[in-house]
């Protein structure tokens, strides 16, 4: 084993080091308990969370934090459901007050059908948030130009979609993901679109620093098993990327020596 392959390989986001490169969502699970088991199986250290009104009719209702402790997992508040920069700002300011953390996931959506990010609004919100001292991980299109703009604005992680949120269609434009990875000086994570383990591995083999997913695990027949599969896929993809794949060849190339054939 070379010295390199023994080196610890960690992911640093906004100055904090993580061992896991898999961030998972906390939506769509059958229960918070199942969600917690999936997070455990995925080896996740960061989980995305949404901000919603408290159910004032039933304050005893189960809370996310009863199962996924914010002491154990880094909560990454998102702005899912926000369609303007103002909505996103309002949501994340409330999130900071509720949790006291400044690491956030910004997403400003354009329409219900595609849930595609509105990049004009996203950039506008990112600029304000960064001025207010937030560390902004930003959900974005796979457009390398906008990715660069967001990085220049000071975002601490660029998170292009692989395919629309919840679609499970896999990485639709590997060329663009690769271009974004090549130019970025901050971590790049594929956020949205991964449907199964091989697609998470593809994201990592493209050189991404991590993958963020929710539906692929939550809507699997066995979410806990899929969480474990994703953990291995992300590690496998990362290791393959670092190892450097062989060159593709047009024709066969025997693996056994030709000399000494009987």
């Amino acid at each position: 084993m070379s010295a390199d392959s023994q080196t610890r390989d960690t992911l640093t986001i906004a100055g904090v080091e993580y061992n896991s490169r898999l961030i998972i969502g906390t939506g769509k699970y059958a229960s918070y308990e199942q969600n917690a088991q999936a997070a455990e199986a995925a080896g996740a250290e960061i989980v995305t969370v949404a901000i919603r009104r408290v159910n004032v009719m039933d304050p005893t209702q189960e809370r996310l934090s009863d199962h996924l402790s914010p002491e154990k997992f880094t909560y990454l508040p998102n702005t899912a459901g926000c369609f303007t920069a103002e909505d996103a700002l309002r949501t994340l300011r409330l999130a900071r007050e509720a949790g006291g953390w400044k690491l956030v996931k910004l997403e400003v959506l354009a329409d219900q059908k595609t849930l595609y990010p509105d990049m004009v609004e996203t950039l506008r919100a990112a600029e304000v948030l960064i001025k207010e001292g937030f560390d902004v991980m930003v959900y974005c299109t796979d457009d390398p130009v906008y990715a660069r703009r967001l990085e220049d604005a000071g975002c601490c992680a660029i998170m292009p979609l692989g395919a629309p949120i919840g679609s499970g269609l896999g990485i639709q434009n590997p060329i663009n993901i690769r271009l974004i990875v090549e130019q970025a000086k901050v971590p790049v994570l594929v956020d949205a679109g991964v449907g199964t383990a091989s697609e998470a591995a593809i994201a990592m083999e493209l050189g991404c620093d991590g993958v963020l997913m929710n539906t692929a695990i939550a809507e699997a027949k066995d979410p806990i098993r899929m969480a474990r599969a994703m953990k291995h896929a992300v590690i496998a993809g990362r290791e393959a990327y670092l190892a450097g794949r062989m060159k593709k060849k047009m024709y066969a190339d025997p693996s056994s020596p030709l000399a000494g054939l009987i």
Binding site: G25, G27, K28, T48, A50, I51, R63, P70, L94, G99
Partner: peptide
């Protein structure tokens, strides 16, 4: 008044 908390989300 709006009173909010963290809930499950992707």
């Amino acid at each position: 008044l709006e009173v909010i908390q963290f809930v499950g989300g992707g």
